[in-house]
Design a protein around this nucleic acid. Structure first.
Length: 952
RNA sequence: GGGCUCGUAGCUCAGUUGGUUAGAGCGCACGCCUGAUAAGCGUGAGGUCGGAAGUUCGACUCUUCCCGGGCCCA
C-alpha cells in the first residue's frame, strides 16, 4: 500500500474544516475587532439591548488622572468589566460610567514643575487652567489604554471631578453636612513654608540633612507633684526638701518650639528612674527613661561619681497627670489646661530622654496627643515665621528659625540646660523656597465624626459602624478592616491650601465670622453648576450667592470676603455616589463598589461618611476588593527595584485577551504575583481553549442545527455524557460568576477543555466524525452536542476573552441567537431536563475502567509492540459488577471509549485486571482500526466492512 | 510599633464541620501518534502543607509563638 493510496481514502473522510485559525494573532486581530465595536457603538447598543431590564449598578471608583495605567489598573478595570459583561449577559441593564479623579496636588505639582521659574508670576486661574489641561490629557490617554483592554463603557461621557455638574454635586452633599452642623473650623498644625508663607503638602517637601541643636532641658516639677513622686517612692522625702531641683528632663532638636510647649509625653509602659547630679553649681534630680540613662550621662559628660541613679523605677503611666513649670513661660497662654505629663504610644527609646516635649500646635503627633488630653492647639507663630505677642517679650516678633541661641541662653541662665550639642538629621524643606519647613497650626475645616446629627441623634462614627453590618464585604474581612479604621479615625480635615480643586464656599466678614450655611452652600452650588468652580475666583460674593440671597444677621455684601481653601480630593471622590450615581438616576445604595483593598481607608470610607451625613445610608450594597500586584517572589513592585511590570508592554506583547485571562486565572482577593513570564505562561491555557474551539468548530462545519439536530434520547451514550458534563460546567461557572470567583470560572473552563473535551470526548469522537457517513445519526448526534458545547462555551468565556469570543461568534455559521455581538447574547442556563448528577456514578466507574485499559497498553507501547491504541486488543478480567457496567453501556461503546480495536470481557472473581496484546486482525486503511471484517470485501480488500459501506 | 491580611508541588488553584497513602490543570521528563499538526494522546517524577510548640486517639485544617510577604496607619 503506497502513500498515494492512503491519500485517496483520506479524501473520503470528513475531516475538520474551519476558518477559525489556530494561531490567534491577538495583537493584530484585537485592534480590528475593537475598531468594529467602536464603529458599531457596541456599548450604546448593549444598553439599548437591555433597555427596561433591571439595573445592575457598578459604580466606578475614579483613578487619578496622571500617568500611564499600570497592572493595578488592569486588574481593577478588567474585574469590573467581567462583572459588567456577565451581568449584561444575564439580562441586566449594567451601565458602566468610567470616571477620573482630576483635582489635587500631584497634578498641580507637575504643572508647577513644568512651569519652572514662570510659576511665580502666574495667577491662580491660569494655574487651574493648566491643571485642567494636564488632567484632560491623561484622562484621554488612560481612557484609550483602558479601552485597549477590551473594556466596554461610556468612554465618550466619563465623569470627571472637575466638571461643573460634578462639582455642584459635591457642594450639594457638603450643604447637607453643613446643614446638620457637622462642619467646623479648628486649628491644626500643618507643614508651613516660611519663605512662601504657604501650607505645604507632603509631596512638596524635600528632605535634606541639616545640623540642628540637640538640647536636654530640665522642666522643674510642681510642688504638689513632687509630693506624689515621694509617695511613689521615686524621690526620697529628704531629697524633696533639700536644695535640689526636681525636674523632668526632655530633649528636643527644635528649641524654638519650647515656647509653645504644653505637655511632656511619656510611654506608659517604659520604666523611669531619677538621676541626681550637680552641674554648673546647680543640684538636680531629673526623671528620665531608664533605658536612656547611659546616653544622657554621655551627653552631659558626667563622670563616674558625679551622679547617682535611683534604684527605684516607675512606669510611665504612673507619671501621668504630674505637673511641671514651663522653663520660661510664666503663665499658661492658652485657655485650656497645660504643663502636665501625658502618655503617648509613640514615645521611643531610640533617642532623647524618653520624655517628649509636646507642642500640639507644632507637631503632628503632638497635635493628636493634644486632642486626646484636650490641650489647646497653641501656635504662637505668624505666617511670616515670627512669634506673636503671646510669647515672653524676649521672643516676641523674632523669626523662629533664628532664636535657638536665645532660647538656649535663657535656659542656660536659669540653669535648666542640662546639655547641648549638634546633630545632623534629615529635615523637610520647602521645594520652592528651599528653606526649612516648620509645623504651624492654621485654621482648617473639619467634618466632625463624633457630633450627633439629626434626625437620629447619632454621630457619623456611630452611623458608620452600624452601616458596615448592612453591607456585603467581599472578602468578608473587609468589614473588620473598615470598622477598625472607623473606630479610630479622627475628625476629617477637608480643607487644603492649594489652587487645583473645588473651593470650599466659605465667606468671612471683617470680624472674622464665617458665613457657611446649607443655604449659602447651595447658592454657590448653583453658580458652580452653571459656570464651573472658576467662578469662585472671578465672581463677587453677590454674584456667587445670587442677588436674592438673604444674608444671615451680621453679614452684608459690602463686607464679605471669600476664603481660598479647596476641598480634600477625597471629599470630592467621596461624593461620586451622588454626583454620578444619583444624578444618573441610579438608586442609592448602588449594587457594587469594586476597588483595591487600600480603598477601605480611602474611597470606601470616605464615600461612606458623606453619604451617611447627607442621606443617612451607605452608598453601596456590596463592596468587593482585590489585592495588589507583587513580583514573582511576592515583593512589592516598583520601578526602582526593577521588578515593575509595564502594562502597556504586556498588552502589546501578548494581547488584551491574554492579560484578561491572566486576571481571571488568579485569586485577586490576595496579592497577585505578576511578571512577564507568569503572564506569558497563560498563553498555554489560551491555546488549549482556542484549539478546543477550533476542533469543535471544524467538526460542525457541515452541521445545520435546524435541520440536523438529534434528540437527546436518540444520542450516543458518550454524547449524552458530554452534554451532562456541559450542564455540570454551566452550573459551576454560573455559581462562580455569581460569587465573583472568576478564577474558578477559568479553572472550570480550562479543565473542561483539557479533560472532558480534548483528552476524552474529542479524541473518542474522531472515528465517528471522520469515518462515518456525513449525514449519519452517529455524526449528527455528536455534532448536535459539539454545536451546543461551542455555543455555551463561547458565551461562558465571553466576559473574559472578549475578543476571542467575538471572533468565535463571527465564524459560527449557525448562531443560536440573532445577535451581532456575543456580548448581547445571554449566559447559558443549566438544562434541567438533563440529569447529570444521576449519571455520574456510572460514568465514574466507566472512566476508571478506561484508565485501567489505557494503563495496560503502556507496556506494549514501551516494547514497541503497538504504537497507537487502535493496534491493540484488550481483555478485561473483571468482577461481575464491572462486567455489568460495561455490558450495560455496550461493549462496542466501551471499545470506542478506549479507542482500541477490540475489547474482550472475561468474568473473574478476583480484582479487575486488564491485559492487552497486539491485535491479530488487519488494519483498515481508511479508519485504521484492526477489525475482523478487514479483507472480507473483494473490491476493497484493505478496508473494514463499515468503511466499505461508507465509500460505496 | 499598631490594625487587617496572606504563606499547600516549579506555576495557577482545590482541599466541606480536624479523620484513610494531601488533589487538579499547566509546566517538566519519557513515550506514542502524524487524518486537530507551530496540534493531539498516554505514562511518570515533583509538596508533609512557611517554621516551632501545644490541644487531640488523630491537624494542612484549632491555639500560641516565630519567620517571611502585602495593604493601611503610626
Amino acid at each position: 500500500m503506497s502513500d498515494k493510496d492512503n491519500k485517496s481514502y483520506r479524501d473520503t473522510l470528513c475531516l475538520p474544516k474551519t476558518s477559525f485559525a489556530m494561531k490567534a494573532n491577538l495583537t493584530q486581530r484585537e485592534p480590528q475587532l475593537r475598531k468594529e465595536w467602536a464603529k458599531n457603538n457596541i456599548y450604546a447598543k448593549t444598553r439599548q439591548a437591555r433597555q427596561g431590564a433591571p439595573l445592575y449598578t457598578l459604580h466606578d471608583g475614579p483613578p487619578y488622572a496622571n500617568g500611564d495605567i499600570h497592572m493595578g489598573h488592569v486588574i481593577n478595570k478588567v474585574l469590573k468589566d467581567f462583572v459588567i459583561k456577565y451581568k449584561t449577559m444575564t439580562g441586566f441593564d449594567a451601565p458602566y460610567i468610567p470616571g477620573w479623579d482630576c483635582h489635587g496636588l500631584p497634578i498641580e505639582a507637575k504643572v508647577f514643575t513644568e512651569l519652572g521659574e514662570k510659576a511665580k508670576e502666574i495667577d491662580k486661574l491660569e494655574i487651574r487652567n493648566l491643571c485642567k489641561k494636564y488632567a484632560s490629557k491623561y484622562v484621554k490617554l488612560q481612557s484609550k489604554q483602558f479601552q485597549e483592554l477590551g473594556i466596554f463603557g461610556d468612554f465618550e461621557n466619563p465623569y470627571l471631578t472637575f466638571t461643573p455638574r460634578y462639582e455642584a454635586g459635591i457642594l450639594e452633599v457638603f450643604a447637607e453636612l453643613v446643614g446638620k452642623g457637622l462642619v467646623r473650623k479648628q486649628l491644626k498644625p500643618i507643614h508651613w513654608s516660611i519663605g512662601c508663607e504657604t501650607a505645604l503638602a507632603e509631596a512638596e517637601l524635600e528632605y535634606k540633612d541639616i545640623s540642628s541643636p540637640s538640647i536636654f532641658v530640665n522642666f522643674p516639677i510642681a510642688k504638689e507633684s513632687i509630693e506624689k513622686l515621694v509617695e511613689l517612692g521615686l524621690i526620697e522625702r529628704q531629697a524633696a526638701s533639700d536644695k535640689s531641683r526636681i525636674c523632668f528632663m526632655v530633649w528636643t532638636t527644635t528649641p524654638w518650639t519650647l515656647a509653645a510647649n504644653l505637655a511632656v509625653a511619656v510611654h506608659p509602659n517604659l520604666e523611669y528612674k531619677t538621676i541626681s547630679c550637680e552641674k554648673n553649681g546647680d543640684k538636680f534630680i531629673s526623671i528620665l527613661c531608664a533605658e536612656r540613662l547611659e546616653a544622657v550621662i554621655a551627653a552631659g559628660e558626667l563622670k563616674e561619681g558625679q551622679y547617682t541613679v535611683s534604684d527605684k523605677s516607675v512606669k510611665g503611666s504612673a507619671l501621668e497627670g504630674l505637673r511641671y513649670l514651663h522653663p520660661f513661660v510664666e503663665n499658661n497662654p492658652t485657655d485650656k489646661d497645660a504643663y502636665m505629663v501625658v502618655c503617648a504610644q509613640y514615645v521611643t527609646t531610640e533617642d532623647g530622654t524618653g520624655l517628649v516635649h509636646t507642642a500640639p500646635g507644632h507637631g503632628a503627633e503632638d497635635y493628636i496627643t493634644g486632642q486626646q488630653y484636650e490641650l489647646a492647639t497653641y501656635s504662637p507663630v505668624l505666617s511670616n515665621g515670627c512669634y506673636d505677642d503671646t510669647v515672653p517679650d524676649w521672643l516676641r516678633g523674632r523669626n523662629v528659625l533664628e532664636v535657638d541661641t536665645l532660647v538656649n541662653d535663657n535656659l542656660q541662665k536659669k540653669g535648666l540646660l542640662f546639655a547641648q550639642a549638634a546633630i545632623t538629621h534629615s529635615y523637610p524643606h520647602c521645594w520652592r523656597s528651599k528653606g526649612p519647613v516648620i509645623f504651624r497650626a492654621t485654621e482648617q475645616w473639619f467634618v466632625s465624626v463624633d457630633k450627633e446629627l439629626p434626625p437620629a441623634g447619632k454621630t457619623l462614627r456611630e452611623l458608620a459602624m452600624e452601616s458596615t453590618g448592612k453591607v456585603r464585604w467581599i472578602p468578608a474581612w473587609g468589614q473588620k478592616r473598615i470598622e477598625g479604621m472607623l473606630e479610630s479615625r479622627p475628625d476629617w480635615c477637608i480643607s487644603r491650601q492649594r489652587s487645583w480643586g473645588l473651593p470650599i464656599p466659605v465667606f468671612v466678614n471683617s470680624k472674622g465670622d464665617a458665613l457657611l450655611t446649607k443655604e449659602s452652600v447651595l447658592a454657590v452650588a448653583k453658580s458652580v453648576g452653571e459656570k464651573g468652580s472658576n467662578c469662585w475666583f472671578t465672581d463677587s460674593p453677590r454674584q456667587l450667592l445670587g442677588e436674592d440671597f438673604e444674608l444671615p444677621a451680621g453679614f452684608s455684601f459690602d463686607d464679605l470676603q471669600k476664603e481660598e481653601n479647596i476641598f480634600d480630593v477625597w471629599f470630592e471622590s467621596g461624593c461620586s455616589w451622588y454626583s454620578v450615581a444619583h444624578k444618573a438616576g441610579w438608586p442609592v445604595p448602588v449594587d457594587l463598589y469594586l476597588e483595591g483593598s487600600d480603598q477601605h481607608r480611602g474611597w470606601f470610607q470616605l464615600s461612606l461618611l458623606p453619604a451617611l451625613g447627607a442621606i443617612g445610608k451607605a452608598p453601596f450594597k456590596n463592596v468587593l476588593t482585590h489585592g495588589f500586584t507583587v513580583d514573582e517572589k511576592g515583593m512589592k513592585q516598583s520601578k526602582s527595584l526593577g521588578n515593575y511590570v509595564n502594562a502597556q508592554d504586556e498588552v502589546a506583547k501578548y494581547g488584551a485577551d491574554i492579560l484578561r485571562l491572566w486576571v481571571a486565572s488568579v485569586n485577586y482577593q490576595e496579592d497577585v504575583r505578576c511578571n512577564d513570564e507568569l503572564i506569558g505562561r497563560i498563553q498555554d491555557a489560551y491555546r488549549k481553549i482556542r484549539n478546543t474551539l477550533r476542533y469543535l468548530l471544524g467538526n460542525i462545519d457541515d452541521f445545520d442545527p435546524n435541520k440536523n439536530s438529534v434528540a437527546y434520547n436518540d444520542m450516543f451514550e458518550i454524547d449524552k455524557w458530554a452534554l451532562q458534563q456541559l450542564q455540570k460546567l454551566i452550573a459551576g461557572v454560573t455559581d462562580a460568576y455569581e460569587n465573583f470567583v472568576f478564577h474558578r470560572v477559568f479553572t472550570l473552563i480550562h479543565n473542561f477543555c483539557t479533560i472532558e473535551m480534548s483528552s476524552i470526548y474529542m479524541d473518542v469522537l474522531k472515528d465517528r466524525m471522520y469515518c462515518d457517513p456525513a449525514d449519519s445519526l452517529s455524526r449528527r448526534s455528536a455534532q448536535t452536542v459539539m454545536y451546543k458545547i461551542v455555543d455555551c462555551l463561547v458565551r461562558m468565556f465571553a466576559p473574559i476573552l472578549v475578543h476571542t469570543a467575538e471572533e468565535t461568534w463571527s465564524v459560527m455559521k449557525f448562531k443560536s441567537a440573532d445577535e451581532d455581538s456575543i456580548h448581547f447574547a445571554e449566559m447559558p442556563k443549566v438544562d434541567d431536563s438533563i440529569n447529570w448528577q444521576q449519571e455520574e456514578p456510572k460514568w465514574q466507574k466507566l472512566m476508571e475502567l478506561r484508565d485501567k485499559v489505557l494503563l495496560a497498553l503502556e507496556p506494549l507501547r514501551k516494547d514497541k509492540i503497538i504504537g497507537s491504541n487502535q493496534e491493540s486488543s484488550v481483555t478485561i478480567h473483571c468482577d461481575a459488577d464491572a462486567a455489568a457496567v460495561i455490558k450495560n453501556f455496550g461493549l462496542e461503546n466501551f471499545t470506542a471509549l478506549c479507542i482500541v480495536s477490540e475489547i474482550k470481557l472475561e468474568e473473574s472473581t478476583t480484582e479487575t485486571k486488564v491485559t492487552a496484546e497486539k491485535s491479530s486482525y488487519q488494519k483498515c486503511q481508511r479508519c485504521w482500526n484492526y477489525w475482523p471484517t478487514v479483507g472480507t470485501n473483494n473490491e476493497y480488500p484493505d478496508l473494514c466492512e463499515r468503511c466499505v459501506s461508507v465509500i460505496r
